[in-house]
Every structure is written in structure tokens, then in C-alpha cells.
């Protein structure tokens, strides 16, 4: 098997469009990102390691990764229910709810931050009922989870919806005819179909949550070791004129993002494979 750099095609414009794409990508993203690595290289390995494993930074990783993980999990559970209800049931207002799912995409994160804080602070609409139960949302780690759940929801619902729409009811009928109960049918027939997309949705929500800044700074309370997320820590380092420190942490986050992206692309490829295998 010989490696083909580019397969022949009679379509024109390959050089032009790929060239433009690469140039644009380089100027806007790759060269500046490379600068980030270059700046980190000013640190020795020991300094770099000390910066990115500092106790406060570790606590921030724990919160950022932990809260993103919880939020993505919540989104997979409830997002699956929401997607199921939207695809399978017909009820008044369904289209409105369906459109509303994208709100977190469209609403600026700063607006989301102040309004979530207004709703979940202990004087807010929902916060006042949680207060007597001793549940603190705003200015506590839970607030971070709430905000991250908000911004991550559409990723799960929107990746699930098209696949759910494609699940053929005949398969379910067949399962029922063969004597499977409804839960069995869902567990054995539908869920296996959904695994790759569920995982993709999870990974997308997780990746998005990991980098979120705008909404969190309003709702988290920004306590060192407790409610300080990694992006905030970077800003904080920057404001203390600690550029090397900020970029070192940025590099760690960047590597995490890149790994996640690769995982997502693999997952999508996997689910694509399964689908082409099953569908047509």
C-alpha cells in the first residue's frame, strides 16, 4: 500500500482553498498558539512542573475537571431524557422547547452568569427555596456545576437528537414481538445504538465546560482552593504579571483540550462506522 498525498479529482480549487485554510488557520490560531508554547519554554522543566503542580493549581484542576465531569454527566442523563421527549412525544410547546435548547449557544456567557447568579443566589427565585434545605448554589462549587450544566446542555441534546430520530421503530417492535419487555428493549436495543453519541455528547459538553470563564466568574465566588476554576487562575496569574505561570497552566489546559478533541473525533468516526454499518 502506498501513501497517497492527495487523491485525484477533477474538481478545481483544491490548492486555493486548502492554501487559504492553512494560511488563515496559521495566522489566527496556530502561530499565536505556538507563541504560547515558546513562552513556556522560557521556564526550566523544574519551574514548569512546580507551577503546574502547585497546590492551588491542583485544587483548580480538581474543581474544573470535577465540576465539568459532573455537569457533563448530569447533561447526559437529563439531556438524554430531554432528547427522548423531544423526539418521541408530541405535546404543545414542543417546538418552543426544542428551540430553547440552543439558548446557551446563543446567550453570551456573561449574561448567563449574572442571570444564573440572580436566580440561584440565596435571595433569588430558586435559591430562596434551596436556602432552608441548606443547599448553597451560588458562590459554592455547586454553582460552578449549575453554570457548566447550563452551557453544556445543547451539546448533548443536539448530538443525540438526529440519532434518536434515525432509530427505526421497527427494531423496537421486533424486540417487543420477540417477547422483550419495554425496559429490556430500551436497554438491549436502543441504548447500544446510542452509546457512541452519548459519549460524544458527553465529551463535547465536558470540553466546553473545561474552558468556560464568562459565566463562572459571576457565580462561583472565586475562592482559592475551593471555587477557583483553572481559567480564572490563569487570568489571576496574568494580573500578577506572572506571564510564565499563566502560560504554563494554559499549556496544560491546551493539551487537555487537544486530547479531548482527538477523542471526540475518534468517537465520531466510531459512531459513523457503526451507522454506516447498520443504516444503509
Amino acid at each position: 500500500m502506498n501513501i497517497v498525498l492527495k487523491q485525484r479529482s477533477i474538481l478545481p480549487g483544491f490548492g486555493l482553498t486548502l492554501g487559504f485554510t492553512l494560511a488563515y488557520l496559521s495566522v489566527i490560531a496556530l502561530i499565536p498558539l505556538f507563541g504560547l508554547f515558546l513562552r513556556t519554554a522560557e521556564l526550566t522543566w523544574g519551574q514548569f512542573w512546580a507551577t503546574v503542580t502547585d497546590a492551588r493549581v491542583l485544587a483548580a484542576y480538581r474543581l474544573s475537571f470535577g465540576a465539568s465531569l459532573i455537569a457533563a454527566t448530569v447533561n447526559v442523563l437529563f439531556g438524554a431524557i430531554v432528547a427522548w421527549v423531544l423526539v418521541r412525544y408530541r405535546f404543545p410547546g414542543r417546538r418552543v422547547v426544542d428551540a430553547l435548547i440552543d439558548l446557551p449557544f446563543a446567550l453570551p456567557t456573561a449574561v448567563a452568569g449574572i442571570s444564573l447568579t440572580a436566580v440561584y443566589a440565596h435571595t433569588g427565585w430558586i435559591g430562596q427555596y434551596l436556602q432552608p434545605l441548606n443547599i448553597k448554589v451560588a458562590f459554592a462549587p455547586l454553582g460552578v456545576v449549575v453554570a457548566l450544566t447550563f452551557i453544556g446542555l445543547p451539546f448533548v441534546v443536539r448530538t443525540l437528537q438526529p440519532v434518536l430520530e434515525d432509530v427505526d421503530p421497527e427494531v423496537e417492535e421486533a424486540a417487543a414481538n420477540l417477547g422483550a419487555s419495554r425496559p429490556q428493549a430500551i436497554w438491549r436495543v436502543i441504548l447500544p445504538e446510542l452509546w457512541p453519541v452519548l459519549l460524544t455528547g458527553f465529551a463535547l459538553a465536558f470540553a466546553r465546560a473545561l474552558g468556560e470563564y464568562g459565566s463562572i466568574v459571576f457565580i462561583s465566588g472565586n475562592m482559592p482552593m475551593r471555587t477557583e476554576i483553572v481559567p480564572l487562575l490563569m487570568v489571576m496569574k496574568l494580573e500578577q504579571f506572572d506571564y510564565a505561570g499563566a502560560t504554563a497552566i494554559a499549556v496544560v489546559m491546551l493539551l487537555a483540550s487537544f486530547t479531548l478533541l482527538l477523542a471526540i473525533n475518534l468517537l465520531q468516526w466510531w459512531s459513523g462506522q457503526r451507522h454506516s454499518g447498520l443504516g444503509s
Binding site: 466568574v217 465566588g221 472565586n222 475562592m223
Partner: peptide, 10 residues
């Protein structure tokens, strides 16, 4: 004193 601080705004 700082143990009593619930929110550290920027």
C-alpha cells in the same frame, strides 16, 4: 479572618 470569607470577588 479569611476562614470567615465566603466569597472573594476580583
Amino acid at each position: 479572618l479569611y476562614k470567615n470569607v465566603p466569597v472573594l470577588d476580583s
